[in-house]
Design a protein around this nucleic acid. Structure first.
Lengths: 352, 352
DNA sequence: TAGATGTATCGAAGCGCTTCAACGGCCGGG
DNA sequence: CCCGGCCGTTGAAGCGCTTCGATACATCTA
């Protein structure tokens, strides 16, 4: 393995000069720089990560802590992970993948050993057991998801409350007065994962403002569960004319069931989904939806955490804050005027 | 940050003794060991990763290189990644997440810098551009997927050829003589990803042996594509009585479409899927399927790569080899006797 | 022209750990 | 009773890099 010393010898300069060429922390004459860079290329030199970490006490690694829950929708997690890894590389950092398996103890280990300079936590619950550790280890950290108390923390998430509001606004604008919401699995609510709660909160809030009735039902990720949920909804509220879904896994089954029951979308039932763009567009009926900007969330998390790492290095007072990405509702083919509403409320028009 | 030296002072021993307690590479009296361990606990000591890597030239990190292709089925990738991370921890290693973004150059960087001790490559193509680098950097590496030439390489994968054979055997046993295979997106075949090719090879081979006709059609991941594929299949081969699907994304749409067309599963059409267990069981009709053992693949990859790391440390001659996991076909509700075949071939019986 | 300033480079001191050679004490065998 | 061997422990030498003065020289100012 080529070392910095060998590069220095080859270029006829001292080791420190090579180091400064690499880091750019001191001015180096163009001539010397070029000579060193050529030597680096010719010898195929790669700085040793361990030595660098030891000397600089910076590992250039960001830890990404994933949940291990099976109820979470894996594609979104995956997309966030890919976004994190990709964006991290743009900041000359690598990503260490931590699973929930090891428990919160993993955070102590990684922070304590200096393995990672910073952490990004996914799937944060309202009362997350990792929060005390985040506050305790004074390393830069960013949460993807919103805990109950965001004091001293930096968080990124989609604005799910606003997402819920927009869904209701859109449907109410089309004349719907009885809306059902098919939510995540019951376990998600029990665990008090913020996003699910915030969505239904937003839905209820706007529904109250606009005089719309809402029925909320959680739903597991199976076909049977969806079938049961659907029949219960129409049993309890036969007048339901629109459904908001926030459970990617059962969107397909739901559309399939509605068709079987002879309920046309959007003529008899309007459907708004909260799901990744890809899921919305790949259904039999293109769904009006609010996209989950997974990539953007991962990217922003890295940018925020890198800002904090930089701030820490310069001793600046890293401001903590919460960043809620604004949701965007895209109208597609699955929503239309409520059955029995005068045609004046044209489907193409926006909110009333 | 607590250092080893501080632990040594606190325990009243030398630094090397603490190190040996940690590594177990020399005999330490029970008494001393306990004293040291208590100090470690009391001080909350975590060995510094960089220093350790520098001194031992082992980082205890495995790099996991993911593809960046959107056509790949993300949940499977994700499950493999989780399996890798989990298993790696059991071997006291961490996982570095590399995306295809950076290109094969990432391998050189990671190997050259000593950031990772070993690599696991996912989504390997038949003629993968990363293969030369794997052979060149003499670091332990394991591929998930099978390239055309496995010389000098260690690979893990499901035995897709056998998977294809088993699907045909099962269907032929039920009396089916005209089978259609709905495959992955055309791009997957163009890229020459091994698993898709090997499956259809296995299908064709067994079909030829058993005198079954096979029609193979790739299919994109959308509802429309599935609709088109299905109608083309029944146009060209109206006598088709069974379908093998190897494209997780469109399984839902396919079942939905079949129902719409009035084709009952399994009475009119039998369906065998090659997909994760979860996908097979969550459909409206539980699918007879060959599971994709994603977790097992990730786990085996780590075990093989760790064996090679250990072998390298002891100077043993690490044998390279290919490990094909045996597929298992699970009969569920989606396959039955071919229409028009005497009842003697009961659906519950295995292959004839 | 002496002194002040600035620029480009170098030398050396670590960073925290692993590991090797060496050492002292204890044992049993001759 | 002495010696060889073993066990448990230690000191010291790095691992390859960063970074802090210090140095040497060129440039500017009064």
């Amino acid at each position: 393995m080529v070392t910095l010393a060998e590069v220095a010898r080859h270029a006829g300069v001292s080791a420190s000069t090579v180091s400064y060429v690499l880091s750019g922390k001191r001015t180096i004459s163009a001539q010397t720089r070029e000579r060193v860079e050529r030597s680096i290329r010719e010898l195929g030199y790669h700085p040793n990560a361990g030595a660098r970490a030891l000397a600089s006490s910076r590992s250039n690694i960001i830890a990404l802590m994933m949940p291990l829950r099976t109820e979470m929708y894996l594609p979104v997690m995956m997309e966030i992970a890919i976004a994190v890894a990709t964006t991290a590389r743009e900041h000359a950092h690598d990503v260490l993948l931590l699973t929930g398996q090891e428990g919160p103890e993993a955070m102590r280990r990684v922070a304590g050993s200096g393995l990672a300079d910073a952490m990004i936590l996914m799937d944060v619950e309202l009362e997350d057991e990792r929060l005390p550790l985040v506050r305790e280890t004074r390393r830069p950290a960013v949460l993807i998801g919103l805990p109950a108390d965001t004091g001293e923390l930096t968080c990124v998430d989609l604005d799910f409350a606003e997402t819920g509001r927009q869904c209701v606004t859109h449907l109410a604008g089309l004349g719907h007065r009885e809306i059902a919401m098919v939510g995540e699995a019951a376990a998600v609510y029990e665990r008090r994962t913020g996003f699910a709660e915030r969505t239904i909160l937003g839905v209820r809030e706007r529904a109250a403002e606009l005089g719309v009735r809402v029925l909320h039902r959680p739903c597991e990720g199976t076909y049977e569960s969806m079938a049961g949920t659907l029949s219960r909804i129409f049993d309890e509220r036969p007048g339901t004319t629109a459904i908001i879904v926030q459970n990617e896994e059962v969107i397909g089954p739901m559309l399939s069931l509605l068709r079987q029951q002879g309920r046309a979308v959007p003529e008899d039932i309007s459907v708004v989904a909260v799901c990744p763009e890809q899921v919305a567009t790949q259904q039999a009926v293109a769904l009006t939806s609010v996209a989950i900007p997974a990539f953007e969330m991962g990217r922003r998390a890295v940018e925020l955490v890198m800002a904090r790492v930089r701030a820490e290095a310069t001793g600046a007072p890293a401001a903590t804050h919460t960043e809620l990405l604004p949701p965007t509702l895209t109208v597609r083919a699955s929503t239309g005027p409520a059955a029995g509403v005068p045609v004046a409320n044209a489907p193409s028009a926006g909110a009333r």
